[in-house]
Write a protein that binds this DNA or RNA. Sequence first.
RNA 1: CGGGGCGUGGCUCAGCCUGGCUAGAGCGCCUGGUUCGGGACCAGGAGGUCGGAGGUUCGAAUCCUCUCGCCCCGACCA
Length: 521
Amino acid sequence: MRTWRAGGGSSRTTRWTCGTWISRPGSRRHSFFMSTAQSKNITPRSQDFAAWYQDVVLQGDMAEPAEVVKGCMVIKPNGYAVWEGLQAELDRRFKATGHKNVYFPLFIPESFLRREAEHVEGFSPELAVVTIAGGKKLEEPYVVRPTSETIIGHFFARWIQSWRDLPVLVNQWANVVRWELRTRMFLRTTEFLWQEGHTAHGSEEEAREEAVRMLHIYADVAEEVMAMPVIRGVKSRAEKFAGAQRSYCIEAMMQNGLALQAGTSHELGQNFGKAFDVKYQSKEGTLEYVWQTSWGVSTRLIGGLIMTHSDDKGLVLPPRLAPVKAVIVPIFRKEEEREKVLEAANRMAADLNGAGLTAEVDAREGYNPGHKFFHWEQRGVPVTIELGPRDLAAGTAVVKRRDLGTKESRPKEGLAAAVRGILDEMQSSMLATGRERLKANTVTASSMGEVEEILSSATAEKGGGKFVMAHIKDDPACDAKVKEFRASVRCIPLKDENDGPGKCIVTGETVAQRSVIAKAY
RNA sequence: CGGGGCGUGGCUCAGCCUGGCUAGAGCGCCUGGUUCGGGACCAGGAGGUCGGAGGUUCGAAUCCUCUCGCCCCGACCA
């Protein structure tokens, strides 16, 4: 392929600009009067949350802007390892619920997108389209997949004949392209990595169960693996996936109070079944359209992870996702100390690794220990271990926990068990902290004025965003009112933890429960 | 597309207005030495067709024209 056209023929062709991430930490002037508490190359959250985020991603060596490819990023080893951790946790759960992995083409005939009216309307502004390939103009352009419902629908139609073929439960790990106007590393990039599950069922109930089951798997990974609390909910009609009958989502709250949609799961109903003629013959002999679902999470989760846990010193990774659990920093003055300390450090690393805790020794020369502490701190390593002559003499090591910054001397004997204990504690404490933050920044409101008041004064970029629980009718016209002040209806929680029915803040009609209204990424 | 701004070593920038000797600084990088319990210091060193093309001039990073790219705000973000 030679040329790309952005925008699927829409007027967007050359209109996009790529986000804010090019700006560098050095471009801002940092104040650093404080000695140990302050990082000199990371903008404090309180000063500029977006800049802080960029700094953490960069200094944590997670990713960098692709530079020569606008809107795209290079995921670096430290970042990709986190993605691999998420993939492993998710994939295991998908397999355990009967799904098999598959792979469909990157290119989709343009006409496929058009078969489902709402779907094409939703996606066409952000399509990248291949019009020339092999030096020749294509008869029918290919779109680079923004998602695969259409091409998978086409093949489902070939695979499914009888009720005996159902359900079909597949998942694919892939990259997708959505030509966004504004991008931020991990949170919204032109190309991103994700998984998309696609299933076909013989009944609406079964499809609904599937969609909800997968939503709970996402929530489980978010909370138990990522230590990122989420609200499970249903999207409003205005916010649902283009072509779905109903969309479920998990919404997380970032440290600045903004909402992040961290995963979605859709009941597609028979929309794609009808568009692609996916029919099966029932036990009774009648021809029926299948009921489908699709569900996905992406590398955006990593952005959520960062904005949930990291601090002004840099990245903080939950132990379960940290590629390296512990780094040992050797300390010595004299040459003979050097040898002894390094030997002890290597032995200690071997012990930890033997106990299943990935550990490394930072034996680099030319950097003093302080430099190394900062280095690993910025990269989010959960535990750093200082090992020097004083420790060797005492048979101990100084163990520091990344999230709280607490340091304590531990006996060398049984260190692996102690570190494991610290990691476990850290994992659950991080989740607890997130839950407290979510709770503390969730408020109720009973009028649109109140909602607007809260969200406008919140100045989310400075860390005061809120989730506002309010009664609002599930009607695009009501959503539009909320959008007037750059907020949105995030979801209608699956479990109503508030006061049940109440009057809609727009129409005054009675609605069953409160929804989450917030500013979002 | 509208409005604003920027292109100078790897990074962040100064120099340009008012043309002139070998284009600088900080950070980073390399070498050697002294250091090492929270971002070390000293000495030496590598690294730049000043985004590109054309023009003015004895002479252009600097002035003029064109061009390319990028950033910010707006519009967009199922």
